[in-house]
């Protein structure tokens, strides 16, 4: 079965016919040519397909495209206009927060989503007081990014990249 859907991806609206089995990840990569979200495990375990769906980070491999007709999707490719870099992307470069780079677009989208959740005061598994303010310690950063695997093991510098972004944001 096929269905016609509309997706707004990185600011551009697309109308396309998809097989109902098509994941959002495959629609982005194979139909719209946006290869920044990566297919790692295709089971929601590795996080390399992470995009922002209506502003929230999700694993696009486990989302059926047809179910998200009308959605606004932001990929790592669309975080900043043209050749400019989003502060999180800049920090990943500055801190050498990757080696092969395959997980990086998912990591970057995940960090952007994570910073918004923290600003919103959402606690994590390691937040001591569930109703208190959120302080993004290294332990918090690691817990909040545990859904993104890096098989090169760049985790130490990914935490440093998040710290750089936080320092730049601080008033």
């Amino acid at each position: 079965m096929e269905a016609e859907i509309r997706l707004r991806v990185d600011g551009t609206t697309h109308t396309l016919r998809v097989d109902t089995r098509t994941s959002l990840l495959d629609a982005l990569r194979d139909r719209l040519g946006n290869t920044s979200p990566k297919k790692g495990c295709d089971h929601g375990q590795c996080g390399s397909c992470t995009v922002l769906l209506d502003g929230r980070r999700i694993t696009s491999c486990l989302a059926l495209a047809v179910s998200h007709d009308g959605a606004e999707v932001t990929t790592a490719d669309g975080l900043a206009p043209g050749d400019t870099l989003h502060p999180v992307q800049r920090a990943f470069l500055d801190q050498d927060a990757f080696q092969c780079g395959y997980c990086t677009p998912g990591q970057v989208c995940s960090v952007v989503g994570m910073l918004a959740e923290a600003t919103d005061g959402r606690p994590s598994h390691v937040t001591g007081e569930l109703t208190g303010p959120v302080q993004l310690t290294d332990e918090e950063i690691r817990e909040r990014l545990s859904g993104n695997l890096c098989r090169c093991g760049a985790y130490v510098n990914i935490v440093a990249a998040v710290r750089q972004t936080l320092a730049e944001e601080a008033p």
Partner: peptide, 9 residues
């Protein structure tokens, strides 16, 4: 449970 990406879905 799970990860932030999964809990958002």
């Amino acid at each position: 449970g799970a990860s932030w990406q999964l809990r958002n879905l």
